[in-house]
Simulated scan of single mutants.
Amino acid sequence: MPTDTLQWTAVCAADDILPNTGVCALVQGRHVAVFRIGDDQFHAIDNIDPQSGASVLSRGLVGSLGDRVVVASPLYKNHFDLRTGECLEAPQNSVRPHAVRVDGGRVLVAHG
């Protein structure tokens, strides 16, 4: 989806997210997990764990499997690719990825 047709919602200051952790934000009524990897990479995926229906992915452990940056669900330990939302153990449980950017020190998540 071209980024020039997207609408953006500011969710927090970039410094509010510690490196290699995530936070949950409400974007247009949707629970979104926003992750900061290192100092300057940001990713966003749906926060709802598809297996449990709980809004918990932002609380998962961030790491890597091969060349993929992932978060492990705190409930069922499934790994979700932070770039694509793909669930590595059960692709049918994949979540939606969201475009994210930092502008003026604020983290913005796309919707629309």
Score class of each variant (00 low, 15 high):
G85L: 10
D49M: 12
A25Y: 09
S73W: 08
V102A: 11
V107N: 05
D67S: 15
V95A: 11
V32Y: 01
L82K: 10
V107Y: 06
R106N: 15
T21H: 08
S58C: 15
F80V: 10
H111T: 13
C87I: 08
D67Q: 14
G66F: 08
R106T: 15
D15H: 13
V109W: 00
G104F: 04
R36P: 03
N47L: 01
N47A: 09
D4Y: 12
A25V: 04
C12H: 03
V69W: 10
A33L: 01
H79Y: 05
D49W: 05
V109N: 11
D39L: 06
P2K: 10
F80P: 01
D40S: 09
R36I: 02
P74H: 09
P97Q: 01
A72V: 09
H43L: 11
M1Y: 12
P74D: 12
L6Y: 02
L6E: 09
R36L: 01
M1W: 14
S58K: 07
A14S: 06
V27A: 01
H98I: 02
G104P: 11
L57D: 03
L108W: 09
A13F: 02
G38Y: 10
A44L: 15
G63F: 05
A99S: 15
L75A: 08
R101T: 15
C87W: 10
L6K: 13
V34T: 02
K77G: 03
K77Y: 00
N47M: 01
H31Q: 11
V62M: 13
A99N: 14
Q92A: 13
L6G: 04
S64D: 04
D40P: 00
T5L: 15
N47Q: 00
R59N: 05
Q51A: 11
G104V: 08
M1K: 12
P50H: 07
G105F: 07
D81I: 07
Q92R: 11
G63Q: 02
G63R: 02
G105A: 09
H79W: 05
A72D: 14
I45V: 06
V34R: 00
T5K: 15
V32D: 05
E86C: 11
E89V: 05
T21R: 14
A25K: 04
S73D: 12
L88D: 10
G29S: 07
K77E: 08
N47C: 03
K77A: 06
M1I: 12
N47D: 15
